[in-house]
């Protein structure tokens, strides 16, 4: 099997998850694309990176997280802090016809953007990648306790922020 086919297979299997994760972190579509491209270039040029990896998704999420953090730091040097990025473009959730769901999605996206990137990453991996705290800890290179506490803080903030809307549409 050619390297191009391998890369395409890897892309088909993981790009959607990586896209959502990085978009949630960066809130900027062009930056997200840059990170994905950098990630796949790295994997293509160093195929040995994936050798012996039991959980390619976890490995790629970790790589994407590191690249996204690097990009945030570079952007920060150019006065684009994560708080500013959070308010920028990059629609996070799929469009829906249900107005209640749309309102909830838009408000949740805003609330996620107000979280610190560390907490946002944990929430994303827990809710939308359905990883355990051990897996999140391995992905983000933190302890499981740290992952759990970040998640708890983040959920509390989100709940407080979304309570009026959630109670209304529940």
């Amino acid at each position: 099997m050619s390297s191009e086919t391998n890369l395409e297979r890897l892309y088909d299997e993981h790009a959607q998850a990586l896209f959502a994760f990085v978009l949630n972190l960066l809130r900027h579509e062009a930056d997200t694309r840059d990170v994905l491209q950098e990630l796949f270039i790295k994997v293509a040029r160093h195929p040995h990176l994936l050798e012996g990896i039991k959980d390619p998704r976890g490995f790629l999420l970790r790589l994407a997280h590191n690249l996204a953090i690097d990009l945030v730091r570079r952007r920060a040097a150019r006065d684009r802090t994560s708080e500013q990025v959070a308010a920028q473009d990059g629609v996070l959730f799929a469009a829906t016809d249900n107005p209640d769901e749309r309102l909830f999605a838009v408000t949740l996206a805003e609330a996620l953007g107000e979280l610190p990137p560390d907490q946002r990453a944990v929430v994303h991996l827990k809710l939308w990648e359905r990883l355990t705290f051990d897996q999140i800890a391995a992905t983000l290179d933190i302890s499981p306790n740290t992952a759990a506490s970040r998640y708890r803080y983040a959920i509390d903030k989100l709940r407080a922020r979304l309570r009026p809307i959630y109670d209304e549409i529940k």
Binding site: E4, L23, E29, F40, I41, A44, F93, L108
Partner: peptide, 27 residues
């Protein structure tokens, strides 16, 4: 509340990115 959040579908990855990214990643 968490289940409600989980049920929200993430936005689709733009389809045209694949060709660009895979081409850029080729040696």
């Amino acid at each position: 509340f968490e289940k409600r959040m989980e049920e929200l579908a993430m936005r689709e990855l733009p389809g045209h990115w694949k060709a660009q990214i895979v081409a850029a990643a080729q040696p």
